[in-house]
């Protein structure tokens, strides 16, 4: 039994291709909390995810937007921090930073990114997150310096400051990345289909994140556990018990569904979200 007590979020995982803006508008109108986009710039059929996020934020009014997850090797941290803060300001605090270490090294290299080993890319992500958080922190006036193995920042001015505390959600599966998530992240953002062992693998992953958070002197509950579902079978009403179970027993507090289906997004907002929230509220109250 694991439940970190977060309010529940519901959203969609939208393919960054023609039709994406309309799907985001549907999610926004339906009242979902999040619309998110994968970031594979080397996939020729996809839009540039940052351009799409900026455009979608402008074309929606209430929903929060995020990469799911942004590709750090192709989006270096200092410019990304500025862009992210800018989009948060422009959108009235509706941007969250889903980020990952970048999985497809050859494809990244073909787009002009640096080719790293998996272990190096984890270390690079840790450096990147530190730089991003520093640049967002305008409470101190000192310049930002980072003399890292992967990223160097020399005497950078801070800011702009985001409109709200942008959450850093990390796409992670393997032990080193889970440890990084626990130590540095505000959230864990994996995809159920890729979690080793599926739902049965959740206790182990959660434990690794919790342990890393505690070692870093943080409360494990500071790390929200989000979950993508590439594909959900059956009618949305049949998902309710499954989601409530994941919330109450595995601490999952955000449900992000793929499939690029307008009707699904509407049903997720109208049927699934209220029912899961009600079930979870009742159990938590008990």
């Amino acid at each position: 039994m694991t439940d970190y007590g977060h309010d529940l979020l519901f959203g969609t995982f939208v393919t960054p291709a023609p039709g994406a803006v309309e799907l985001a508008q549907t999610a926004d109108r339906a009242g979902l909390d999040l619309v998110t986009f994968q970031d594979h710039p080397y996939q020729p059929a996809f839009y540039d995810t940052w351009t799409l996020l900026s455009y979608v934020a402008a074309q929606t009014s209430r929903i929060r937007v995020s990469g799911n997850v942004l590709n750090l090797p192709l989006r270096p941290p200092a410019p990304l921090a500025r862009a992210a803060a800018s989009l948060d300001i422009l959108s009235g605090g509706r941007f969250e930073l889903g980020i990952g270490a970048g999985g497809f090294q050859d494809a990244i290299a073909a787009m002009g990114g640096r080719k790293l080993t998996p272990a190096q890319s984890v270390d690079a992500l840790a450096e990147g997150i530190a730089i991003i958080r520093d640049l967002w922190d305008t409470d101190t006036r000192s310049r930002v310096n980072h003399d890292g193995t992967y990223y160097n920042v020399v005497g950078a001015k801070r800011g702009p400051a985001p409109a709200h505390d942008i959450a850093v959600w990390v796409g992670a599966y393997k032990p080193k990345m889970l440890a990084l998530t626990g130590a540095l992240g505000d959230g864990w953002l994996p995809t159920m289909e890729y979690v080793p062992g599926g739902p049965a693998g959740l206790p182990d992953a959660n434990a690794r994140i919790d342990e890393a958070a505690l070692s870093a002197g943080r409360d494990p509950a500071a790390v929200r556990r989000l979950m993508n579902f590439m594909r959900m079978d059956g009618p949305p009403s049949s998902w309710i018990d499954h989601f409530a179970d994941l919330a109450l027993n595995h601490g999952i507090s955000a449900f992000i569904i793929g499939g690029d289906d307008h009707a699904m997004a509407e049903a997720l907002a109208a049927e699934v979200a209220p029912a899961v929230r009600e079930l979870v509220k009742r159990e938590r109250g008990a």
Partner: peptide, 10 residues
């Protein structure tokens, strides 16, 4: 201040 590309797209 604001990032130019993000602002332009917005």
């Amino acid at each position: 201040g604001l990032d130019p590309l993000t602002t332009a797209v917005w």
